[in-house]
Computed example of a mutant assay.
Amino acid sequence: MLTKTKIVDGAAIKKAIEGRDGKLLSSFYTDDALVRVVDRNNPPSKPREIRGRAAISTFWDDICSQAMTHKVDTTIAEGDNLAFMQACAYPDGTKVVCAAMLELKNGLIARQTVVQAWDE
């Protein structure tokens, strides 16, 4: 029996993020994936690093459990790279913007860099 591998693409990312589906998002990563987050609290010289699918699952579960909306505005794919822009909003009107670059390996996310900024 053949096992169907989920292939990560812009439509899949959009569906999972906008649907706040942390479990689906986590399934897009390789077991040894690395997510780097750069923002005000995690500057480029010391980014937050989330290693492995289990830790990434916890990361996405936290984000998806928050009362906020997510909209993926643009996705661009080239070879084994996928980039997307995301806009988020909290109920109090606070906005967040996120740019993400993904490196794919066999159709799954092996490395991801996230740069985000929010209203303060």
Rank of each mutant, 00 (worst) to 15 (best):
D21G: 10
V72R: 00
D80H: 12
C64N: 10
M101P: 00
T113F: 06
G93Y: 12
S57M: 08
N42S: 13
N42D: 09
A110M: 05
W118P: 00
N81P: 01
T5D: 12
Q116F: 09
C88F: 00
V8F: 05
V96R: 05
V114M: 12
D119T: 13
D39F: 08
A100R: 01
V8M: 06
R36I: 00
V38F: 11
D39A: 09
K95G: 04
I76G: 03
I17G: 00
T69Q: 00
F28T: 01
C88Q: 03
V96W: 02
V37A: 11
K4V: 12
S65I: 04
L2P: 13
T74S: 06
E49T: 07
D21M: 08
L104Y: 05
V38T: 13
N106F: 04
A16G: 09
G52C: 07
G19I: 06
T3M: 13
T94H: 14
L104Q: 02
R111N: 15
K14Q: 15
A55L: 06
D73Q: 05
A89H: 01
T5V: 09
T30C: 09
G93M: 10
I76K: 13
T5Y: 08
V8N: 01
G10V: 05
D61F: 08
A100W: 01
D61Y: 07
E78S: 15
L102M: 12
C98S: 12
I7T: 14
A83Q: 10
Q112L: 07
D62K: 14
I17D: 00
K95L: 04
T94S: 13
K14V: 06
T5I: 07
T30S: 13
A117K: 06
D61P: 04
E103V: 07
